[in-house]
């Protein structure tokens, strides 16, 4: 009976007795969710354009953040370092298109997927060679990102919102809105979706596959840079950021691999779900459940929608 009480009654009693903590948990979940969504967006962009699951998205986050901080440490002013990092991400996109994707056109998806593994290890080695493996401090003041927190008294307690988290939420929302418009309303966006449907068909109507790939990898690079800045500011800029990218997997399972809104909604559901789960139900099983709870949530949704919340339903004749 006690166990049933602990599972079904006690967490809700806690929510009612300390609503400020509930609000704080929801906020932390939303912030984590937004940041997961940012990582997932990088995956979705490339998957949409090429049907490839880009295993290198995690290391792109690290590489972009390291480039920014590395350039700053080398004496380049912060804003110029940011612009140069964007340029580096563009060069990376061109390099990936020329050296990895172009020779593999029309190869099975698994070949392209494996190529992104190779790219991951190349970027790890190259990043360590150029910037070293030491953790670095993300430049926040220099990029005019706010520090500190805003506290609100609420329900007899308080809720604390970190300014950097608010900024992350705003930046992520702006990026998502911009990408949604880009995909739906622009010529390049439509071309991009055409490429995703069929490389050959897209080529036959005059769409430049190479150009589209550069655009999409560059966009994913920009998303990686934004993600790296936000996650780096919460902790440090190190190769440990790569692990965070794995958190995007349940988000993608949940939201669908081809949907920008899916990445956002999936991110928020996973973020809020894992924080609520860890905070209210985690102590029942010794805590530390976050790492697998996200997958359980995603699997729960998959039982009802195998293609994910916003994924395209694929019917194949056999």
């Amino acid at each position: 009976m006690d166990i049933l009480y602990s599972i079904f009654i006690d967490p809700f009693v806690q929510m009612g007795s300390a609503p400020d903590l509930l609000v704080q948990t929801l906020w932390e979940g939303l912030v984590s969710g937004v940041l997961y969504a940012l990582i997932a967006l990088g995956f979705v962009l490339i998957f949409k354009a090429s049907g490839v699951f880009n295993f290198a998205q995690g290391i792109m986050v690290v590489f972009a953040a390291l480039t920014l901080v590395g350039l700053y440490e080398a004496g380049v002013p912060a804003i110029l370092a940011l612009i140069l990092t964007i340029a580096v991400m563009f060069l990376l996109a061109v390099g990936v298109e020329r050296l990895v994707l172009r020779p593999l056109v029309n190869q099975p998806d698994i070949i392209l997927f494996m190529a992104t593994f190779g790219l991951t290890y190349f970027l790890i080695g190259f990043g360590e060679l150029v910037f070293g493996g030491n953790p670095k401090v993300m430049i926040t003041d220099e990029l005019y990102l706010p520090r500190g927190s805003v506290e609100f008294e609420m329900f007899g307690g308080f809720v604390s919102l970190q300014k950097i988290d608010i900024t992350a939420a705003i930046i992520a929302s702006v990026m998502v809105a911009a990408l949604a418009v880009f995909f739906q309303k622009t010529r390049i966006g439509r071309a991009l979706r055409a490429v995703a449907d069929s490389h050959k068909a897209a080529l036959s109507v005059g769409i430049s596959l190479n150009q589209i790939w550069i655009i999409v990898w560059f966009t994913a690079g920009i998303v990686a840079l934004a993600t790296g800045i936000m996650w780096g500011a919460r902790s440090e800029v190190s190769f440990a950021l790569q692990i965070i990218a794995l958190k995007a997997l349940p988000v993608l399972i949940l939201g669908g691999f081809t949907s920008v809104p899916g990445a956002i909604v999936g991110g928020l559901i996973i973020g809020v779900g894992e924080k609520l789960g860890e905070f209210y139900w985690g102590p029942l099983v010794g805590s530390g459940i976050e790492s697998w709870l996200a997958y359980v949530i995603a699997l729960g949704f998959l039982l009802f929608r195998p293609q994910g919340l916003f994924g395209e339903r694929i019917i194949e004749r056999i």
């Binding site: 300390a18 903590l21 932390e28 902790s235 440990a240 692990i243 965070i244 894992e274 976050e290 790492s291």
Partner: peptide
């Protein structure tokens, strides 16, 4: 009171510290 941090949550410890706050 125990607050384990899985390796993949090293950089995202907000749940653990919310529990500390509680």
């Amino acid at each position: 009171k125990l607050y384990p941090v899985p390796a993949d949550s090293m950089q995202n410890q907000s749940s653990q510290w919310l529990s500390v706050r509680r």
